[in-house]
């Protein structure tokens, strides 16, 4: 079971903290869509971008998974890349389900 995302809230202002909490579900949904639809050639670049964005929104586990996917995808299609893609999607979906269970904030 994935760790509950977004628990380690940095000491941001209330407005920024609320924004981060509100957007997490959307950020995860878009990340899942991106990884499900992007081409193999774009996978490393997209995973790289997502690693940064997910981390900024406090989704550390998802960010780490995206970073591992980026590393695996850098050298092109391989069984390792496919495994990492599946693992990353599992983490993202798990995070999304966890957030949905908690409700906003």
């Amino acid at each position: 079971m994935p760790a509950d995302p977004g628990d380690a809230e940095p000491q941001e202002s209330p407005a920024v903290a609320a924004f981060l909490a509100e957007r997490r579900a959307d950020v995860l949904r878009r990340a899942i869509e991106t990884l499900e639809t992007c081409s193999t050639a774009d996978l490393a670049g997209e995973a790289h971008r997502l690693a940064g964005t997910l981390g900024v929104f406090g989704l550390d586990e998802a960010s780490a998974a995206a970073r591992a996917l980026m590393a695996a995808a850098r050298s092109g299609p391989s069984p390792d890349m496919s495994r990492e893609l599946a693992a990353t999607l599992e983490v993202l979906r798990g995070n999304a389900a966890s957030l949905q269970g908690r409700g906003p904030g």
Binding site: E12, A15, V56
Partner: peptide, 12 residues
């Protein structure tokens, strides 16, 4: 998402 966050943080 990043653009909106940067905008909010800097506006604040």
């Amino acid at each position: 998402d990043i653009r909106d966050l940067i905008s909010l943080a800097l506006t604040e």
